[in-house]
């Protein structure tokens, strides 16, 4: 694989992801029942909780966000769901951190400021896989956070303005024949 192909392969960058499981220091685990997870590994779950805690620090319990993401992975291609686990291991990998950022501890064991520095290093990296990986984690956490109606209200979204009981359940509505035979809603088109 040449350098361009390597960088182009996005999160799926095989060589990168294959070292993801190797670690100088293990990730900080968070007690989770593996059977309750659909796609994320317990380790991936713990790492993603640590990431979510920095992406949306105002949320008291990041596990809600990560459980939502786990459900979303039902819908993506099976290979892409597996890649998210690999990305998380890579994100937390101390060996990788040492090579790229001169940092020795895994993301999940660092303090808040150091974690923000890791996110920023991935964001600003010269390596496409890292920038894209940052975007994936960021978007998943933000989307899952603001999927919640309480969070939505907190940013000024009032929710849909429903018009109860209203729907035009007629596939012919709007056609010339329909117009000839009906008074359209509101009197005229």
């Amino acid at each position: 694989m040449n350098r361009r192909q390597f960088l182009k392969r996005g999160v799926i960058g095989g060589a990168l992801l294959s070292v993801a499981g190797l670690a100088l220091y293990p990730s900080r685990e968070r007690g989770v029942d593996a059977a309750s997870l659909r796609h994320l590994s317990p380790r991936g779950f713990a790492i993603l909780c640590a990431v979510a805690a920095r992406i949306v620090p105002h949320v008291a319990d990041p596990t809600r966000i990560v459980r939502q993401i786990d459900v979303w992975l039902d819908d993506v291609a099976p290979d892409a769901a597996a890649d998210v686990n690999k990305l998380l291991l890579l994100f937390d990998n101390a060996l990788f951190a040492l090579i790229f950022d001169g940092r020795l501890s895994p993301f999940s064991r660092a303090d808040g400021d150091a974690q923000d520095a890791v996110l920023t290093a991935w964001r600003d990296s010269r390596v496409t896989v890292r920038r894209s990986g940052y975007q994936v984690l960021r978007r998943l956490c933000l989307g899952a956070c603001y999927a919640d109606t309480n969070e939505q209200r907190g940013i000024g979204y009032q929710g849909p303005r429903r018009i109860p009981g209203l729907s035009f359940d007629d596939s012919k509505m709007g056609t010339r024949e329909w117009l000839a035979a009906n008074t359209p809603p509101g009197g005229k088109p």
Binding site: R138, L140, G143, E151
Partner: peptide, 15 residues
């Protein structure tokens, strides 16, 4: 809100 939040750049307090 869901797509809007994911599209808005940044993370943490800045976001």
């Amino acid at each position: 809100p869901l797509l809007g939040a994911a599209t808005m750049p940044g993370f943490g307090a800045a976001h």
